[in-house]
Design a protein around this nucleic acid. Sequence first.
DNA 1: GCATAGTTCAAACGGTCGTTTGAACTGGAG
DNA 2: CTCCAGTTCAAACGACCGTTTGAACTATGC
Lengths: 211, 211
Amino acid sequence: METPVETTRERLLNVAEQRFGEGGYEGTSLRAITVAAAANIAAVNYHFGSKEALLRAAVARAMAPVNTERRRRLDQLEAGGPPTPEELIRAFIEPGLELVLRRGERGAVVARFIGRIAFDPSKRIRELYATESDPIERRYLAALQRALPQASPEAVAFGYVNMLGLLALHQSQALSPTPGAAGVGDPEDPGKLAENLVAFLVAAFDRGLRP
Amino acid sequence: METPVETTRERLLNVAEQRFGEGGYEGTSLRAITVAAAANIAAVNYHFGSKEALLRAAVARAMAPVNTERRRRLDQLEAGGPPTPEELIRAFIEPGLELVLRRGERGAVVARFIGRIAFDPSKRIRELYATESDPIERRYLAALQRALPQASPEAVAFGYVNMLGLLALHQSQALSPTPGAAGVGDPEDPGKLAENLVAFLVAAFDRGLRP
DNA sequence: GCATAGTTCAAACGGTCGTTTGAACTGGAG
DNA sequence: CTCCAGTTCAAACGACCGTTTGAACTATGC
């Protein structure tokens, strides 16, 4: 087969999601990224325009498969009867965990990167993440509301924020064993983490949302 | 009464928790802090020794009343019969939300700061937060395990991490209206947020932890 | 008044930051 | 071979970073 040579652009994106996920946006310098990517310092501005544009491109590339899978599952669910809360929660959580965690080291790097971005309280980064995942999130919110007609819109939004936050938490802890909290980010069986998280959230949604 | 003049040291701590909470540790410069505190740039190194030491001092000061209140509640609970999961969750969440949110703007600033620190995936900052809250957290973990004897230690730790994460999430969103998720960080009634969060977590702990 | 410990100050230290420049290289099209 | 658009490169830009210095100020005890 032909040799799939990594372009400078791809190497920059790979290293960016590794370093940004590890040290955060402000805590990672372009020089650290370009050195690790075996690229010239000017390459970032040539290919992306700025440091922030590199972040934006990395977020878009990392989120694309997750969003695609979520859309696919949501389509499939809504094609059948009205989905249950559990089905919706599963369709949201699993693409975020399995899809990246099942891909070994590289997948965990992507997960940590996504989690850290989704997590970040900084205004600029929050907006960046929001624009990337806004449309699909609206669909989930609406579907959740239909599945939980007895809950107020505020309660559904509250549950959704919590689901998003917990997913980001466990994503950002990929590659972080956190020995105090055993079994959480168990790299041996990411599916188990997904099951635990889904069960936790289903219980909270079903009985923990005040009307 | 005597005029309670704020010392330079206090002003630095006040501004530090505001700016660190807003822009993160790496994203906030000592110059920005000292200017806002009407102090000389050298004041930080004189009073604290370094930027990181300033962060450490700010974390310690902000967490102290929360930890004290948690200890007090835990003592009180354990003086009576064996506490229920709900009582334990309440004793953990409420000091983190009410104690700071009930104090107006300043309290919200402290909450955001604590939440952001507890939230931060960076190694150095995680360790800093851990040393500050480790002893009391061990007590909570042990008490939770006793209150949930049917759950495995891994499951209890998983629930605990989620509780910690959701508290940090809502703390860090103090001062952030997040219009999409209405009612979440409602500054008008922080007690309501505490109630919602406790109910959410109690349901998850009671029925969402796999054995 | 004077010494002294505590605090503040302007100024500068060496380093690193994101970004820009213009020349050098690359590989395919004409 | 020539040309040229695309890419890489070393070098430098001004700005800002955390930290240090040593002198100046302040207030208290003698």
